[in-house]
Nucleic acid binder design. Structure first.
Lengths: 219, 219
DNA sequence: TTATAAACAGACCGGTTGTCCTGTTTTGTC
DNA sequence: GACAAAACAGGACAACCGGTCTGTTTATAA
């Protein structure tokens, strides 16, 4: 009698593997079209283990949203924009980076946040709240960056919230069309339309007034 | 033995009733979350009748997309924009009309096209093509209107396709956020951001060059 | 070692799903 | 009226889904 292989408990690793395939499968096929059997097979996990870490399918999806989708938005949008020299440049860079990534990978699976938001927002209020918070954080990061730019004198008197809302909306909608047409070109199209627009509320445009003094309020 | 009620065949009416509830249910719960049993119960239709008009669930959804969703986009977007005095005014009017409608009805179910597009674009190529075509028609109508405005001298040298893409993207994305937050305010926010932008490519702005010649087309 | 709980395995079950199939009724046509 | 096709009724079914349940193995602490 041979004891062939011994089991090694690895709770974190197993949880991570499940979240990996769940994130990927939910993104590719959606929540309802992904069965737990599919996930178990893809992750090489038994039902007992899956149920141990995520008692229900909803709990699994909630974890995907709060841990993975939120992180994805942070990594591809919030952090780059905050690190950019200005909000406008950050937005432009993200648009282009995403467009290029999609074009060279040959297909468009859409925005993880928007994909799940459309399918789950009306299905369950817990889902909806988690998704709405990610949207809110996303918009607030952009608005904060605009405000910082304005303090530096590099941005006009545009309303930060409006700019942020429009940016997120334009990106989300563009990704929606890119997914339907399987063509990332509309992303570039929207970016160019976005760039060709100029801010107007301050009709007399302050042209590159590089920061001279620390300013307390919006220029 | 009493023959109480006789049956009356009404193919078109039955088909219409099925499409009515399918359109509504797909919009509210999505495709995968709507079972044929639900639809049959809601429509008061038996399985035989349903299967007679729509052999598969996919065929039903395809009919909803091509007949109902396309019509909804036409009625709430294409026709009003084409009938408006200008593309910009038409877009503004639609944004406001939708926002007001959502606010007074108290909840947001999202854009029918985007809802189905997100769930079905990757699931099946026939779905995807049908949805992509509706997006394309939507954008083209707006672009055509911009071109008409330009011929009338009421619009600058903005790129019509870019304007159209950005408009559809901004609306789709705004509806996505409105659905997640169950608050139509973001629609107004995006509209204001949109209005505050000015067209730039023709840096010297042609200001209100009112029509000098009789125009053959829409006034 | 021993006790205890966590981690995992895998079978099992009730309910649902989409589809199919057989029959009956209505409608149109000659 | 005869007949064929369309329109409709409703049951049946196999596959599948998510969740539960019991049992076994591993890690931890005393």
């Amino acid at each position: 009698m041979v004891m062939r292989k011994k089991r090694t408990n690895d709770p974190e690793g197993m949880r991570r593997r499940v979240l990996d395939v769940a994130e990927d499968t939910f993104q590719a096929r959606g929540y309802h079209a992904s069965s737990l059997g599919d996930l178990m097979a893809a992750a090489g996990v038994t039902g007992g283990a899956l149920h141990h870490h995520f008692p229900t399918k909803k709990a699994l999806a909630l974890a995907v949203i709060e841990e993975r989708v939120a992180a994805a938005v942070r990594e591809t949008w919030i952090d780059p924009v905050l690190a950019a020299p200005s909000a406008r440049e950050g937005v432009r860079a993200v648009f282009e980076a995403v467009a290029e990534e999609l074009e060279q990978q040959g297909y468009v699976r859409g925005c993880p946040l928007n994909n799940l938001a459309h399918e789950l927002s009306l299905a369950d209020d817990e889902f909806r709240l988690a998704l709405a918070r990610i949207f809110a954080d996303w918009r607030q990061a952009i608005a904060d960056k605009i405000r910082a730019d304005q303090l530096d004198g590099g941005e006009g008197a545009i309303d930060p919230e409006r700019f942020a809302a429009l940016t997120v909306a334009a990106y989300s909608g563009a990704m929606s069309m890119a997914k339907a047409s399987q063509n990332a070109g509309v992303l570039r199209e929207c970016l160019k339309g976005f760039e060709n627009f100029e801010l107007s509320p301050s009709r007399g445009r302050l042209k590159r007034r590089r920061r001279v003094l620390p300013r307390p309020k919006i220029g």
